[in-house]
Amino acid sequence: MPILVNGQPREWTAGLTVSMLLEEMKFSFPLKTVFVNGKRIPKSEHSRKTLSDGDKIEVIHMMSGG
């Protein structure tokens, strides 16, 4: 079962952390908040938080621009 990132399926690999996922997806915009299965994961925990198969991840980018 894949993980869902903002509703889009994505392959899951064992040991995948929030930080690794954000890097893989090139989600570099700093004003964003990550929720895993509805629970907010503070930035300080991104590198420690490992994702499980089937997790639903929301990476909410706050608006910006001009």
Partner: peptide
């Protein structure tokens, strides 16, 4: 001009 609305992240990335 994008100064009325900049919705790319809400729409394309967040799928909100």
């Amino acid at each position: 001009q994008h100064d009325e609305a900049w919705l790319i992240f809400m729409d394309m990335v967040n799928k909100q």
